[in-house]
Each structure stands twice: as structure tokens, then as C-alpha cells.
């Protein structure tokens, strides 16, 4: 069953740029970027249970770092993307260490405040980020190859997304993943079992920020401009809802949520006057009737139908 799903996904991914316009490929690029963001959030909230609301800040750090590296210093884009990921994860590690003592709601609020403060920095540090004028991002370059259109960037965006997905699965199956989940269930029990709780939490933050930074790097592959308005709490909430709607705690849920919500978002753009109400209503209805996420909900239905 899973094999078929992967085959279908592969077919769609390969066929997409051949049968559709650059606009659809742009949407796909955006969706893949958000998928990586969701995977990052899955690691810190879904696996480790740490309620971090600073995701958009790390995404922004990744975009600016990768963008500046490529535009001002002319680094080839695999290096730029990596710089984005590392810059974000460095800050992520620091935040993780500072946040060690905090729990649940306090952690959520502190990371929320950090995210907003970071957006203010993006908006006011004119020398580096261009401030309210935004930052121009030059087309990504790899030796001779230049990525100018969405279709040019697409294969590399897909490759990066797949790499991050593989990384997520590796981490989940490794001992680190088990440590994450142990900390989520019960810190005291985990400690008793010999899990280095403090270090695990810091690592979770760092890795999650790395993912967000890589997503930022992906963004620079197909975008020419970034403005701090897109890097605030709204974006973090968007990613959070994708993960929750898809299903917290499962990799498939994170990926599925990104796709489902990305499509819903684009559809809602066609109904401007009801957008906000529809968005809010979707959140409420999901929380009321499909709390484990869309895919768990559907899976339950199918399982029920088959057994009936």
C-alpha cells in the first residue's frame, strides 16, 4: 500500500513540470518548502513534545543567510542552502539551551516572543536585511547553471525535500528519535531510563531549526525577493496548523498536512470574502472531530469500513 503511494507520488513529481505551467510548478515549489518546514516542526513538537512557536524566525534566518550568501558572495546554491540551515540551527541551539527550564505554555510564549522579536530585527536591520524594502535574491547559481524560472529550480527543490524527508525518517528510527519520544511522554521517566533529557531537548530545537533554515534555502532557489512581513507569527501558525491538521506525531501526517493545507489555502484565495471565516472554521472543526489529524481520521474511516 505504501509502495503504491510512493510510486504515485514519484510519478506526479516527475510529470508535473512537463504537463503544467510555471505557476503550478511555483505552487509545488512552495508546497515542498512548506513540507520541509512541517517536518522541522514535527521533530520539535510532534516527536519531542516541545511547544516551539519560533519556526518562522528560523525560516527567515535561513532565507536571509542563504540569500545573502548567494547574492553578495556568489556561493553555489548547495552551499547557500547549507549556510541557511546552519545559521538557523546555530540560533536554534542557543534558544534550546535558554529554554531548558521552561515548560509547555511558558516555552510557547517565550518562543512566540522570540519569533516576533526576530521579525522586528529583520524589519529594522537595514544594513543586512534591507529592512522594510525587502531583500533582492539573485538567481541561484551552481558553477555554470543558473536557476531562473520555477521549472529550473524545481528538480533541486524536490531533491532537497526528499533529502530532508529521508533525514527525518533516519532520525525517527535512530536512538535520537527514541530519546525524543521518551522526553515527550515523560521527562522524569526518560531521565530514569538514562536519556540525557537536557541535551535531547537542545538537540531537538537545533535540528528543527536546521530544517527551517534549509526550507529557507529552498525558498531562495525559486524566489527573487523576501520581505519580513511574510516571516511572522502568521507563518508559524500556518505551519503548526498544517502539522496538526495532518496529524501530530507522524511523518506522513506532517507531509500530508502540508499538501492538504497548501491546496486549501490556494483554493480559499478564490473566495476572498469568506477566507478568514472558512480558515477559522476549518481549524475549529478539525479540532472538534479529527484531533489526530486528517489522515488518522481517514484511516480510521477506511479501517472501520473494511471491517464492517
Amino acid at each position: 500500500m505504501r509502495f503504491l503511494a510512493i510510486a504515485v507520488a514519484a510519478a506526479v513529481l516527475i510529470a508535473l513540470p512537463l504537463v503544467t505551467t510555471g505557476y503550478v510548478v511555483y505552487l509545488a515549489n512552495l508546497l515542498l518548502t512548506f513540507t520541509v518546514l512541517c517536518l522541522g516542526m514535527h521533530i520539535v513538537i510532534g516527536e519531542t513534545g516541545q511547544f516551539s512557536l519560533a519556526h518562522a524566525a528560523f525560516y527567515g534566518i535561513g532565507i536571509y543567510a542563504a540569500g545573502i550568501a548567494g547574492t553578495t558572495f556568489g556561493t553555489p546554491f548547495p552551499v547557500s542552502i547549507l549556510i541557511g540551515g546552519l545559521a538557523a540551527s546555530a540560533i536554534g541551539f542557543v534558544i534550546g539551551m535558554v529554554a531548558l527550564r521552561m515548560r509547555d505554555i511558558y516555552l510557547a510564549l517565550a518562543t512566540f516572543a522570540f519569533g516576533e522579536a526576530m521579525q522586528w530585527v529583520f524589519l529594522n536591520w537595514n544594513a543586512v536585511t534591507g529592512g522594510p524594502n525587502g531583500l533582492r535574491i539573485a538567481p541561484a547559481r551552481l558553477f555554470g547553471l543558473e536557476l531562473v524560472t520555477d521549472k529550473d529550480a524545481y528538480p533541486f527543490v524536490v531533491a532537497t525535500a526528499i533529502a530532508m524527508l529521508v533525514l527525518t525518517v533516519i532520525v525517527a528510527r535512530a536512538r535520537l528519535g527514541r530519546s525524543f519520544r521518551a522526553v515527550r511522554e515523560s521527562e522524569i521517566a526518560a531521565q530514569a531510563m538514562g536519556v540525557p533529557v537536557r541535551r535531547t531537548k537542545v538537540v531537538a530545537f537545533g535540528i528543527s531549526a536546521f530544517f527551517a533554515g534549509i526550507a529557507g534555502g529552498m525558498f531562495t532557489l525559486f524566489s527573487t525577493y523576501i520581505h519580513p512581513d511574510s516571516l511572522g507569527f502568521q507563518t508559524t501558525i500556518l505551519v503548526l496548523t498544517m502539522v496538526v491538521v495532518g496529524g501530530l506525531g507522524s511523518i506522513g501526517g506532517a507531509v500530508g498536512g502540508a499538501i492538504a493545507f497548501g491546496l486549501i489555502s490556494e483554493l480559499l484565495r478564490q473566495a476572498p470574502s469568506f477566507q478568514e471565516i472558512a480558515y477559522g472554521a476549518i481549524l475549529i472543526v478539525f479540532m472538534m472531530y479529527a484531533p489526530k489529524g486528517l489522515f488518522a481520521f481517514l484511516a480510521d474511516r477506511f479501517r472501520g469500513a473494511r471491517h464492517a
Binding site: 511547544f51 501530530l248 478568514e276 472554521a281 481549524l283 479529527a290 484531533p291
Partner: peptide, 29 residues
Amino acid sequence: QVSRASGSPVNLVIATLGLSYVLKGLVRR
């Protein structure tokens, strides 16, 4: 209903978030 469906505080917070969007949208309408 949200509490009953899942005890997770994340879900309750997201439900309040949903309410904030609905209220804003209604007022704009």
C-alpha cells in the same frame, strides 16, 4: 468537544486560534 476528542492542550489552543479568525472574518463581512 475538543477536550473530549483529545486532551492535548495544543488542540484547545488551536481551536481558540480558529475562533479568532472566525470573529475577525465576521466583523470584516
